[in-house]
Design a protein around this nucleic acid. Structure first.
Length: 286
DNA sequence: TCCTCTCCTTGCTT
DNA sequence: AAAGCAAGGAGAG
């Protein structure tokens, strides 16, 4: 099945798939191929500006679902309202082609449990390895879906360690088992106060504040979640002009970045990691 | 209750 | 080649 989807605003696939929010997209020459649910999608370049062409193998959820997944209906520029000062950061504006994907919550949770003290290639190996070993083959594709909790719950710790997951293996296994017994009310987490949603996720082993915020941001459409990792710690310290601060204080400082601070976090993460120190934002905010 | 330190796996880099 | 490093978390003290 093929779709030609209209795109509002800028779109940069390399940034979108390479920024560390999703781990099942691979660059194939000029194209990008990825697994979403029970589908394999392939995006091809050379399409007129303002649209995205994708080819789908497996269970196609339909055009509107894809548009929703890629967040094509909203121009990311709207997230700059109220934080005009960020526009002035060198290299910031071109990053707006990065689209925050709307991913499935469980797969997002499992992926970020794998992310602890790892890097993107390692996380990718873990996630892809889990799918290869425990997922369901997608008809017409050589790749597999990500296994649901009840399937992963039956795994052995040694199976996961064999994938190179190390100390994260027991965390993921126990998290899968708990979700199998006692499913998380995902819908409720989308609307409850952010601190409450975070606390709920942090009950799971292998899930601290940072990973809980990643799940909220990447899997539950909570753009108000601001994950503080080592890069964002540095970036936020610099922007705020402070010498040192606790993660909680940085999280509180980020409130001034508005309701879409999670999206801005993603751009700042990339900017800090690839571009070096950031200049302090002018006082009085904005 | 809160803070700080250490350990936990692996594989790639310096 | 040993040490450092990578989108952290848990447990001890």
């Amino acid at each position: 099945m093929r779709h030609l989807l209209p795109v509002l605003g800028p779109l940069d696939l390399d940034l979108t798939f390479g920024c560390g929010q999703a781990f099942r997209w691979k660059r194939e020459g000029d194209a990008w191929a990825g697994i979403v649910g029970f589908a394999e999608a392939r995006l091809r370049p050379g399409v007129p500006d303002g649209s995205l062409q994708l080819e789908v193998i497996g269970e196609d959820p339909g055009a509107s679902a894809w548009s929703d997944y890629f967040r094509l209906g909203e121009d990311p520029t709207i997230h700059l309202e109220g934080v005009e000062s960020l526009r002035a950061l060198p290299g910031f504006m071109p990053l707006l082609g990065l689209r925050l994907l709307r991913q499935e919550p469980w797969e997002t949770l499992a992926s970020f449990v794998c992310s602890a003290a790892a890097n993107i290639p390692k996380i990718t190996r873990s996630v892809e390895g889990i799918a290869d070993r425990f997922g369901t083959l997608i008809p017409g594709s050589a790749r597999r879906s990500f296994p649901v909790p009840s399937v992963l719950a039956k795994a052995r710790e040694s199976d996961l360690r064999a994938l190179g997951m190390g100390f994260r293996a027991p965390y993921l296994l126990e998290t899968a088992r708990r979700l199998d017994r006692d499913p998380i009310p995902w819908a409720a987490l989308r609307s409850m106060p952010i601190e409450e949603a975070r606390e709920r996720l942090q009950r799971l082993p292998g899930v601290g504040a940072k990973i809980a915020d990643c799940v909220l941001l990447f899997g539950l459409d909570r753009l108000d979640a601001y994950p503080v990792d080592r890069w964002i710690r540095r970036a936020t310290l610099e922007l705020s002009g402070r010498r040192r601060a606790k993660d909680r204080e940085l999280d509180a400082w980020a409130l001034q970045l508005g309701p879409a601070r999670g999206y801005l976090q993603q751009l700042l993460f990339h900017l800090r990691r690839t571009g070096g120190p950031l200049p302090a934002l002018p006082r009085g905010r904005r």
